[in-house]
């Protein structure tokens, strides 16, 4: 019986595991954290339909309760090597697992906003990240730096994305619509709160995204300012004063806000960077390189080593579900009639 090892039990990894198991493949699913779906759990609601992410978590975790999937949590795979008997996966404590093929779905981490020192994250309490905002929305408790209800909130796009200074030229793809989603969630809870979104380009590329933007303008009266924030500093009463330019007016701008929310981009997780290097499948920015972005997006330069999800590039949850399924099919199509991975 064919055994496939999946490294990383996020959305893509679990979806792939589920499809593989349904086709009679034995799956070993490794997760370095104590529980699966860590990134998805940190979300409150998902765009574009404002579905509770906990519902998706429940549906995905239910898929793991079938014969053929062995989920091994708190197990960080740090090396993958191929020998004559197959793929060996190992952690730091001399555990060794054998598999016929490996799917790398080690995912992303968010950009460390403290690297943009001029924006004051980690220095001023009133500067938070989109992840902090998501947690506040999930807890249904929106507070400013002094634990009072915020009257003004500003969001800043592209923190750690499209930024030469931190070495990330790419667009993180999900932040534009996430800011719009969070702004709407804020207004649902605090109708009196003034919400401003600072943007360079609003990339509403997915189905339903543009409609969300329209709703944010029409129904929730969210103020969109075209300009990047150059610096932020705290005022004596714990609020945040920020500087920008309204580039459409061509005028410099200053504004005081209770909270400044930095829309942090996606970077490859440490696991992604590590396995990418160890297996020589590393692409730009430490993401893993697939064979071809159009037709072979789940295979890598190494036969028997597959890739799915945000280990490749920034993706939405929707993308990851599809990519996990697609990776499972790519693996199934490599398994021959004897149930083994034959010669390519």
């Amino acid at each position: 019986m064919t055994t496939v090892a999946i490294v990383g039990a996020g959305v893509a990894g679990i979806e792939a595991a589920s499809v593989l198991a349904a086709h009679g493949v034995k799956v070993k699913l490794f997760e370095k954290e104590a529980s699966v779906l860590g990134n998805l759990r940190s979300k409150a609601f998902l765009f574009p339909n404002f579905q509770a992410s906990d519902q998706i978590v429940d549906s995905l975790t239910a898929k793991l309760l079938v014969d053929g999937i062995e989920t091994i949590t708190a197990m960080e795979i740090v090396d993958i090597k191929h020998t004559s008997d197959g793929w060996h996966l190992s952690d730091n404590k001399n555990h060794d697992y054998l598999a016929d093929a490996v799917l790398v779905s080690t995912g992303y981490k968010v950009f460390d906003a403290a690297r943009k020192e001029e924006l004051g994250y980690g220095i001023y309490k009133g500067v938070i990240t989109s992840l902090d905002m998501e947690a506040m929305i999930k807890a249904d408790k929106l507070v400013n730096a002094v634990n009072a209800t915020p009257r003004k909130i500003a969001f800043l796009q592209c923190v750690g994305s499209r930024d030469e200074k931190v070495g990330n030229h790419y667009c993180s793809k999900v932040c534009c619509v996430t800011a719009v989603k969070q702004a709407i969630e804020v207004k649902k809870r605090l109708p009196q709160c003034e919400v401003t979104i600072f943007y360079m380009d609003l990339r509403m590329w997915g189905q339903g995204f543009e409609e969300m933007y329209r709703t944010a303008q029409e129904q929730y009266k969210i103020n969109f300012v075209r300009g990047r924030i150059s610096e932020a500093a705290a005022t004596f009463d714990g609020r945040i004063q920020l500087k920008s330019e309204d580039t459409l007016l061509g005028l410099p701008l200053k504004m005081t806000t209770d909270l400044l929310v930095l829309m942090v981009g996606m970077e490859p997780s440490e696991g992604t960077v590590n396995l990418g290097k160890k297996c020589s499948i590393c692409g730009d920015y430490g993401f893993i390189q697939s064979t071809n972005p159009h037709l072979s997006d789940n295979t890598t330069a190494i036969d028997g080593l597959f890739v799915a999800g945000t280990a490749k590039r920034p993706m939405t949850v929707q993308d990851c579900v599809n990519d996990g399924r697609s990776a499972a099919l790519a693996i199934l199509s490599r398994i021959d009639t004897t149930g083994n991975l034959g010669a390519e």
Partner: peptide, 22 residues
Amino acid sequence: FQCGMCSATCSARNFTDYNIRR
């Protein structure tokens, strides 16, 4: 890409109509 960071932070811009982005 016309983000306006340069003109937002510009020392001359705060007191004159100088706008480097423009």
